[in-house]
Design a protein around this nucleic acid. Structure first.
Length: 385
RNA sequence: GCGACUAUCGUUCAAUGGUAGGACAUCGGUUUGUGGUACCGAGAACGAGGGUUCGAUUCCCUCUAGUCGCC
């Protein structure tokens, strides 16, 4: 069931749920200045352990004083553990890595060097990054993997979560973290499409939190995420598993829907109780010339969707590359530092055709603003109740 | 006015006496904890007329248009 909105406190500021974070994988939302991101209404971003440990490397990150300092970003950041990237790498090319009990062994995409990412190393790297929210190293599997394979990955994910939690407690001691200064720690539920494995994973993780102190006296996870792929082979949202998994997450933990999704998927997930989202879609689609646009009465349609579950399209996305926009002088509103700039479809179309990076940048900003507005509408809808 | 050269998808270049190929453009599709300025697919052309030939986009002639050169 849908959860009430709440405020969470992090070292770099408060956040109101539900909220959306764009992926700044290599410490930037590709092609956008942080002021541009901020102007869209986005207040948090996701950075990536896997990419940053390879480039610029943790010696650099430590010397410059963390990823906030490197980016010059004052608001909260969440780091992903690297588990999904190794999974993605192996899925694409089995030569590039293997999962062993010790951790994830992989080859760097930057220089081909070999690395072993253990749960302990993932936590210590994320502590060095200095982020506000971190995620345990997990073991995602494709939904098409065998039941036994996924069941084994669930058990490993639980064991790795325990090792991450111990490593977190060590970091808390060494770094003198308090309840106010410590980063939030997220576990991840695996189990593929199987309800009983999702249940088993959730129980195992909750048990780990109760058994193992996080170094600050807590017996719960700050957040718990939905791991693995959340769409089926047809590209449709796996609603049953997502709803079932959301119900497994204790109210004391934030429900994080990793990697979701389209605007429609996000609203569906909010109805189920998911509170946090990150996704490449708005920036990715923007870079490929696509703009999300509200339909008429979008706000009313979202409200109806949220309360009744009946979906009426409240947006469409426009391929600005097509020649139909060559002389399209309708306005495209894009937030900038001190307000809003009006561009025309015709101009952005032109920029895309001449491969000026300003075109994708305008659309990425536009789409991020769209997502920020969507979350704002969802928050206000939930508060109205 | 004379001469040379050229004429092929929307554009720009190929090839060929027997179902004309690429690139860019056009249209469509893919992208969900970012190896994506990417990938996949479709439609689209032999300047006009005549001749040689079983058969001509290809060889020959005329015309038209363009480019270059010379007066």
């Amino acid at each position: 069931m849908q959860r009430p909105t709440r405020t969470i406190h992090t070292p770099h500021g408060d956040i109101q749920t539900p909220f959306f974070m764009p992926d700044a994988t290599r410490a930037s939302v590709r092609g956008l200045a942080r002021e541009d991101v901020r102007a869209t209404g986005i207040t948090e971003m996701v950075v990536n352990t896997y990419h940053l440990m390879l480039q610029p490397g943790m010696d650099v990150v430590r010397r410059v004083g963390g990823v906030h300092a490197l980016m010059g970003w004052e608001r909260p950041l969440l780091s992903d553990s690297g588990g999904y990237q190794v999974y993605s790498l192996i899925h694409k090319n089995a030569q590039l890595g293997t999962i062993v009990e010790e951790g994830a062994r992989f080859r760097s995409v930057v220089d081909g060097s070999q690395h072993l990412l253990t749960p302990e190393k993932s936590i210590s790297i994320q502590a060095d990054l200095g982020v506000d929210m971190m995620v345990v190293l997990d073991d995602p599997r494709p939904n098409t993997a065998s039941y036994d394979d996924i069941a084994a990955a669930v058990e490993r994910t639980i064991r790795w979560a325990a090792r991450c939690r111990r490593a977190y407690a060590t970091q808390a001691r060494v770094r003198g973290w308090t309840q106010e200064t410590r980063p939030k720690l997220f576990a991840v539920i695996q189990g593929g499409p199987y309800a009983e494995l999702r249940t088993r994973c959730a129980q195992g993780l909750v048990d780990v939190a109760q058994r193992i102190d996080d170094g600050c006296g807590n017996t719960h996870w700050d957040g718990i995420g939905f791991g693995g792929r959340h769409i089926d082979a047809q590209g449709r949202l796996m609603e049953d598993v997502l709803a079932q998994t959301a119900a497994l997450i204790p109210e004391t933990s934030l429900a994080f829907a990793l990697g979701i999704g389209t605007p429609e998927d996000i609203v569906r997930c909010v109805r189920m109780g998911w509170e946090m989202f990150d996704c490449v879609i708005p920036t990715h689609e923007g870079r490929h010339g696509r703009a999300f646009m509200w339909t008429q009465d979008a706000r009313e349609r979202i409200a109806q969707f949220l309360t009744t579950g009946t979906y009426t399209p409240f947006y469409n996305y426009v391929n600005v590359r097509t020649a139909t926009h060559r002389t399209d002088m309708r306005a495209l509103h894009v937030p900038i530092h001190n307000g809003e700039a009006t561009y025309t479809y015709a101009y952005v179309h032109h920029l895309l055709k001449v491969n000026d990076p300003l075109g994708p940048a305008i659309l990425a900003r536009h789409n991020l603003a769209f997502y920020a507005q969507l979350m704002y509408i969802l928050r206000s809808q939930i508060m109205d109740k």
